[in-house]
Nucleic acid binder design. Sequence first.
DNA 1: TAACTAATTTGATGATTATAAAATTAATTA
DNA 2: TAATTAATTTTATAATCATCAAATTAGTTA
Lengths: 190, 190
Amino acid sequence: MLVFGGNAMTEQEALQLFKCLADRSRLQILKSLAIEDMYVERLAERLGVTAPTISFHLKKLADIGAVRSYKSQYYTMYALCREAFAVTILDIIKTESDDASLQAQREQIYRRKVLDSFFEYGRLRAIPAQRKKERIVLEEIVKAFAPGTIYSEREVNLIIADFHDDFCTIRRDLIAENLMARSDGSYWRL
Amino acid sequence: MLVFGGNAMTEQEALQLFKCLADRSRLQILKSLAIEDMYVERLAERLGVTAPTISFHLKKLADIGAVRSYKSQYYTMYALCREAFAVTILDIIKTESDDASLQAQREQIYRRKVLDSFFEYGRLRAIPAQRKKERIVLEEIVKAFAPGTIYSEREVNLIIADFHDDFCTIRRDLIAENLMARSDGSYWRL
DNA sequence: TAACTAATTTGATGATTATAAAATTAATTA
DNA sequence: TAATTAATTTTATAATCATCAAATTAGTTA
C-alpha cells in the first residue's frame, strides 16, 4: 500500500498512483465516495457497470490507499481516505527528483552540457581550459579508439584530427589523463 | 489547453490530466525539465527513446499546460510550467464534484437511499411517514403499471399487494399524488 | 540554392488494461 | 441445514496507447 500522504514515494509508486487515477470509472467511484460511503452493488448501479468491475477498481484504489472498507450489516462499505489526497502534484514530481538517482543524473546532465558546448557537429570547437571539463571531453574522444587495438602515432593523429586540428596537445593529454598508454611509438586505449 | 492551476476543471479534463501523468516516459520528462530546460533530442538521449516518441509525449504535456516551448538557436527548448502543478489531488477530485451534475447526483443518491431503506427484496417494508419520502416510494411502485393500459380496481390491488399488504392506502395515495387516475372503476397510469 | 539537422507527422505493431460473463466464495436469513 | 444474496476471482475479449521506423516539414549553415 502506498503512503502518499507521507513523503516517501518512488517513481514506481508515483506511476502507480497516477495510473490508478487515470480512469473514468475510478474517478467516478472516488467522486461518489466523497459524498458518502457506499457498497459495491450501489456503486455498480450508479456508474452503470457490473459489480465485478467495481470490485476490480476498488481493489486498485485500495492498493494505493485511496479507499478503505468496513462491514455494515451484510454489506461491505467502502470509504474514501481523504487524508491520502492532500499532496500537490508538484510534490510528487519533485519528490521523485529527490531520488537516489539524482546525483548520477546531475552528473550526467553536467557532462552532456559540457560536451554540448564544446562539440559542434562532431568536432571540438576548442580545448577546454578547465581541467575538469577537458577530462570530460577527452573521455568522449577516447571512445573513437577500439579497446585492445594497437595504433601507430600516425593513426592516432589522424583519428584525433577528426575532432580537432591540434592533435598533438590532445594526444599528450590523453596519455597524461591515463586514458591511453604509449610504448615506443605504439598507442592503445586503457 | 487545461488551466488546472486555476479552479475550473471538468471530469473530462481531470481524466486527461491524470492520463497524461500516468506514463513513465512523461514523468521522466517532467523530472528532467524540473532541473533545466531541454530540447527534444537531448531528452530522447536521456530517456533512451527516439525523438518522435519525445515529440509525442511533449505534445500531450503541452495540451494540459504542463510544458511550454521557445526557440533557442536552432533548438526548440521545452520548459516546465511549475505553476500548473500547485494543486492537490483532493482539489481535483472535489472540484469535479462541484460540477453542474452535482445536484442531479445528490438527488439520485437521496432517492436511492430512501428506496434502499424502505424496500427489502422488492417489498415495501413500511409506508414512509414523510410525504417527500412517500412520493419517491410511490414513483417506484407506479413503474409496475404499463403506460397506456387500463386496469380494474382488482388488478390494481393485486399489483400493489406485491409491494405491500396495505394496498388501499397506496392506491389512494397514487391518485392523490397524481401518479395514477381513476374514472368509474377503471385505473391508468399518468 | 544546396546540404544538413531538428522536429514533427504518419502508419503499423505490440503491450497493457478495462470490462463483462461465468464460476466461486463468503455471509446472512429462514 | 438449505436458500439467498453480496462480493470476489477467473477467463476471455475489445479498446487504448506507447513506441519505432519511415516520411515529411521547418529551419540553419555553407
